[in-house]
Simulated scan of single mutants.
Amino acid sequence: MVRPALSLPTGILRWAGWAVALLVIVALRSAAHAHGVGEDDRAFIEGAAGMAIGPYMYLGAKHMVTGYDHLLFLVGVIFFLYRLKDVGTYVTLFAIGHSTTLLLGVLLDIRANPYIVDAIIGLSVVYKALDNLDGFRTLFGRAPNPKAAVLVFGFFHGFGLATKLQDLTLSKEGMVPNLVSFNVGVELGQFMALGAILILMNLWRATDSFRRSAIAANAALMCAGLVLVGYQLTGYVTQA
């Protein structure tokens, strides 16, 4: 991965400040819905009986496209990936991770506190931003294996999806095909979101501002991840 030199001119610091503020606002506004499913979606899932492949695929895609924590992590993962082959490798590892724990978490009824799981998901954003800044080598002299880290954090992202479904009363009839359909929808949503992110990233990379702003952008990404962690830990401490 090609990373720019660590220097922060005044203009970039100003840009970073605005970016951090925007990300904080978005994260805080979105976090209010982090542990729930929309009322219409909840009513459908809890009222459905038997197989509902199309609707579950739609719900899975919708959750991924609107999942700010997943999207922030994906942005960090592909930030310095320039070859489609590399993008495909990392996204495949992430998909394997979250597909595994999404399905097993629900089918085997493996439970954990959703606030803790989502706090770890927030940490995944912090990790990727710090890795993009080469912070691990600077601080510790070595960096974690990036592919292994994406796979491991993929497990937590999938478990986060599982905790949302575990809050609902799912029909036992047709549960397996419905879960598989939901997971397929998640993958389709990820593909759509990733396509849009890659188009925007490539347009940005073609400008002179990319190398000047890359450090500030990852600093803002790390701050957004820390906000998510703080919000989830606050929810854990204050939950009834």
Rank of each mutant, 00 (worst) to 15 (best):
L168T: 05
G50Q: 11
V77K: 00
Y115W: 13
I116W: 14
W204S: 04
G38K: 00
F136T: 09
T163V: 03
V77Q: 01
M57H: 08
A143W: 06
N202W: 12
V184F: 13
T163D: 03
I53E: 08
L151G: 07
A214F: 11
G189S: 06
A240C: 02
M201S: 04
S181P: 12
V26F: 11
E39N: 08
L151Y: 11
T101P: 07
V24P: 03
P177S: 14
V180H: 06
R205D: 01
H33N: 11
S209A: 15
G154N: 01
Q232D: 10
D109W: 08
R83Y: 07
G11N: 12
G60P: 10
L200C: 13
A220H: 02
E39I: 10
T169E: 12
G97C: 01
L130D: 04
L22V: 15
Q190K: 06
V150Q: 01
G97Q: 01
M222Y: 02
G67L: 01
I199P: 01
I78S: 01
Y90V: 08
I197H: 01
S30V: 09
S213G: 10
A43H: 08
T169Q: 13
L151W: 13
M201G: 00
G97S: 03
F155C: 07
R137T: 14
T163R: 00
R111T: 15
T234D: 06
V150M: 03
F136P: 10
M57I: 15
G105T: 08
T234L: 10
R29E: 07
L130G: 09
V227Q: 05
N218H: 09
F80N: 08
A214T: 08
G154W: 00
L233G: 05
H98F: 12
L71H: 01
F210M: 05
A162S: 15
I121Q: 01
Q190V: 03
M222F: 10
G76I: 00
G11K: 09
A32G: 12
F79I: 03
V37Y: 03
V65N: 02
S209Y: 09
A32W: 08
S7V: 14
Y236K: 07
L194R: 00
A119Q: 05
L123C: 13
F153G: 01
V24S: 10
N183P: 08
I12V: 15
A148N: 09
M51R: 12
E173K: 11
V186Q: 03
